[in-house]
Structure formats: structure tokens, C-alpha cells
């Protein structure tokens, strides 16, 4: 029905504006903070007018944090690099393992199939802290503490279920007849998987990969417990700004801006796939 009055439209616009302000204002404020000195930030009342400075970014990039208590080394760039490395390698491995697994769960009905799939998903239900204590003990035993390999392994807990469930929904959405048609045309199972199933599930795989990347990137607690400073990602690295002489709000803001930028850029670029991929998975998965 298309009966919309002027009043309805006005109310709709106002509501949308309120929601946008609620969600976007903190981001905007952080962005402003990253160009302010700590004194500007802590001024009461707060003011949007200040002399912008890039000293926060300078400190992050050079790795020298100058505070009242003296100069402090902060490995922020190293943390950023760790984030990139950990997240991307984790996602690639999760894709290599998860896409064929998702295909198997979607196409083949086998004993306990549903149970296994659900168990994998349930890893996402458990609070990370629940597994962390035993994990850190194991890791110390087998020497995986404070290694990239160990972290990437643990990150599979985040990435794998996500990829499995989103991509599975996508595979289920492809009519089996399309694959049958290709096989009857004389092509093997593997060629059908690589030439038909994977390309057709492409948007879903991309969406799942992106989402897994963002989740890995944003993870905090795994790396906090299982790795030391030189292996930690930005999320943990930002803790360094809570110094003995106070909290370095300006640097934190700049660090947030820097660390959010890559994921935000990717997410914006792939927004279309993300929404489409996620909603499909939700309906079918």
C-alpha cells in the first residue's frame, strides 16, 4: 500500500536522523580527538574548536611516546602489522578449510552431519574466557604461547564457524541441478566444485571472508592472554597508552582511527556483498 502522508515522511526522516547521530557521533568525536592534545581533550567544557595537531599520529608512527614522565617506546606500527598478518593468514586458512567443509555440509547428508555443523557453530556461543584458561596451559606445554602459529590456530575458533555457516547457506542456495548438469556434461566432482559451486558462491565466500577478517581484527582477549607485546595486534597494543602518568587519550584516538581505517575501507568497499551474503546465509543457513 502506498498511502503515505506528509507527517509519516517527516517522522521517518527525524527518526533516521536520530539513529544516525547516535551511531555516528562517537566516531566523529574520536576522529576529532585524534587531532587534539590531551589538554584540549580534557578541557571542560569540551569544545569542537581547537588547534589541530598531528603529534598523536607522529608519536604512533615513530613509536616514541613523549609524556610528562619521559619518553616511552610504543610498538604501535608493529602491532598494526601483527593485526594484518594474524587476521589475513587466519582468514585464508579458514577459507581453505571452511569452504570445502561448508560444501560438504550443504550437499552431502551424512551421519551426525547436522550435529557436527552445530558443534562448530557452538564455538561461537561459548565465551572466549571459558576456553582461554585451559588453552593457555596447553599452549605453554606444547610451546605455542607467544607464536603467530598459536594465535592463528586460536583465531580459527572465530573465523571457521563464521565461514562455515555463511558459505554453507550460499551453497545450499545453488540448485543442485546446476551441478548435476555440469557433471552429466562429463566433468568430475572436483571440477564441478571449482568451476561451478565456488564461483556461484563467490559473493557469499567474499562476505564470509570479510566478516571473519573484521572479527579477527577486532579480537582482543585471545592475544592479550596468549601473546606478548611483539606478537600482539593493535587491539591489545592500545593498552600501552594507559601509562603511569595518565591515559593518553589523543594517541588512543589516533590509534583507533588508524586501526579502524583498513577494516572500514574494506567493509565500505564490499558493503553490497556483505549485506547480501549475510542475509542469504541467515535465511538459508
Amino acid at each position: 500500500m502506498e498511502h503515505t502522508s506528509r507527517l509519516e515522511r517527516i517522522i521517518r526522516i527525524v527518526l533516521v536522523a536520530l539513529i544516525l547521530i547516535f551511531f555516528l557521533f562517537p566516531i566523529f568525536w574520536i576522529f576529532l580527538m585524534s587531532f587534539q592534545t590531551n589538554e584540549d581533550i580534557l578541557r571542560i567544557p569540551p569544545s569542537p574548536f581547537f588547534t589541530p595537531t598531528i603529534s598523536n599520529y607522529q608519536a604512533l608512527i615513530t613509536g616514541k611516546l613523549v609524556s610528562a614522565a619521559g619518553t616511552l617506546d610504543i610498538p604501535f606500527m608493529r602491532n598494526l602489522w601483527n593485526s594484518v598478518l594474524l587476521s589475513s593468514v587466519s582468514v585464508v586458512i579458514a577459507l581453505i578449510l571452511g569452504v570445502p567443509a561448508a560444501y560438504a555440509f550443504a550437499r552431502f547428508k551424512f551421519r551426525l552431519g547436522e550435529d557436527i555443523a552445530f558443534t562448530l557453530l557452538s564455538f561461537r556461543f561459548a565465551p572466549p574466557l571459558l576456553v582461554l584458561l585451559p588453552l593457555s596451559l596447553y599452549f605453554q606445554e606444547i610451546g605455542l604461547t607467544d607464536t603467530y602459529a598459536g594465535l592463528i590456530w586460536v583465531y580459527q575458533l572465530i573465523a571457521l564457524p563464521l565461514i562455515l555457516w555463511i558459505v554453507r547457506g550460499y551453497f545450499e542456495d545453488i540448485s543442485p541441478d546446476i551441478e548435476y548438469a555440469y557433471r552429466i556434461g562429463g566433468h568430475s566432482w572436483w571440477r564441478t566444485f571449482t568451476r561451478i559451486a565456488v564461483p556461484l558462491a563467490g559473493p557469499g565466500i567474499a562476505a564470509a571472508g570479510l566478516l571473519a577478517f573484521i572479527f579477527c581484527w577486532n579480537n582482543f582477549v585471545f592475544a592479550l592472554i596468549l601473546a606478548s607485546a611483539d606478537k600482539q595486534p593493535v587491539t591489545v597494543g592500545s593498552l600501552a597508552f594507559v601509562t603511569a602518568s595518565g591515559i593518553q587519550y589523543g594517541q588512543i584516538a589516533a590509534a583507533i582511527v588508524l586501526s579502524v581505517t583498513p577494516t572500514l575501507a574494506i567493509a565500505l568497499y564490499a558493503q553490497r556483498y556483505l549485506v547480501e551474503g549475510l542475509s542469504l546465509g541467515a535465511v538459508k543457513g
Partner: peptide, 10 residues
Amino acid sequence: MAFQNFALFP
């Protein structure tokens, strides 16, 4: 084989 839903590769 030809399918009811055509099953063309999109």
C-alpha cells in the same frame, strides 16, 4: 540431460 528449471550456469 535437460532440467525443468533449465539449470543453466549463471
